[in-house]
């Protein structure tokens, strides 16, 4: 659509601008302010320059949390994306099954995040939880509060439970937008099921998959509440992700300076990913228009 140039449109954006300035810019400036200072209480602050940043980037604690978070995010993607595509392909395309599937699948998305944690905390317990009870019954020694591997497995299965539906819903929306004529053409050419998937369904899901991948990456990179409720970051530090570490530092220990420095670095990492997200998505949009123009 051709847009007209009109700088008065700024007035329409102004309310959003003021609101977001209040909720985002002012707090962010506080963070920047703390990141360069040290405090000994009584609201006395001393300029320390980039000391906190040097300390943070050299600290093992931060490296470990970052690596754990990256491993977590990539395992989530490796499981949820193929699983989501597979389930979307098998979903009914019409009839009573469609609303039933959509509503039931979307349900985990609307459970408050700490309740997701509570649900899995209970579900995985060996004494009162269904999952833990049966795993121990068949001889697997499963205890997520003691065993780091069990804790990781619980956190990952919980995230798969919580968010795979998002991928399913997005892929499903992409699939139902494919015109029937494409399938007819494939049928006439005698295309195999794989060819239909590879050359018709996958390209049509391209843009929604991109959104799914990036949303899942970023949200899993910010994860806090669910693992915090289930494992509290433990056993030891084995499931302490960046957000958990940050909250521990900022609110638990009230180390304002280091926490602020970590916030900024953390935010910059995410900002980098959002930039990639935005650019790739815009390019994908431009490509789509390009193809549409050719048809």
């Amino acid at each position: 659509m051709e847009k007209t140039v009109n700088n008065k449109a700024w007035f329409m954006v102004l309310p959003v601008l003021l609101l977001v300035a209040f909720t985002a810019v002012i707090p962010l400036m506080t963070v920047v302010n703390y990141a360069f200072q040290d405090s000994f209480g009584n609201n006395q602050f001393f300029w320390v320059g980039i000391e906190w940043f040097q300390e943070l980037l050299a600290s093992e604690r931060f490296h470990d949390a970052l690596v754990r978070n990256l491993i977590f995010s990539f395992s989530i993607l490796a499981i949820e994306i193929p699983l989501g595509i597979g389930i979307a392909l098998c979903m009914p395309k019409k009839g009573w099954g469609v609303p039933v599937c959509l509503v039931l699948m979307a349900l985990p998305l609307l459970v408050p995040w700490n309740v997701v944690g509570t649900i899995w905390q209970v579900f995985g317990r060996a004494d009162i939880g269904l999952l833990g009870y049966f795993l121990n019954l068949i001889g697997i020694n499963y205890n997520y509060t003691q065993d780091p591997i069990a804790a990781w497995a619980t956190v990952i299965v919980m995230d798969v439970w919580h968010w795979t539906s998002l991928v399913v819903l997005l892929c499903y929306a992409g699939l139902v937008s494919i015109p029937e004529a494409y399938y007819q053409a494939a049928r006439i050419d005698g295309a195999s099921r794989w060819a239909v998937f590879r050359y018709i369904q996958l390209p049509k899901m391209h843009s929604v998959l991109l959104i799914a991948v990036l949303l899942r990456f970023m949200d899993s990179f910010m994860i806090y509440t669910e693992p915090f409720v289930v494992t509290g970051g433990g056993p030891g530090n084995s499931t302490t992700f960046l957000s958990i570490d940050l909250v521990k530092m900022a609110i638990g220990q009230f180390d304002l300076g280091p926490a602020a420095a970590m916030s900024l670095v953390y935010f910059l990492i995410i900002l980098l990913f959002s930039w990639v997200f935005y650019t790739v998505m815009n390019n994908a949009g431009a490509e789509k228009k390009h193809y549409a123009g050719e048809e």
Partner: peptide, 14 residues
Amino acid sequence: LTNRMAPPAVFALP
């Protein structure tokens, strides 16, 4: 968009 991507943990204290 970047605000949608901001980790809430960063903003809790400020």
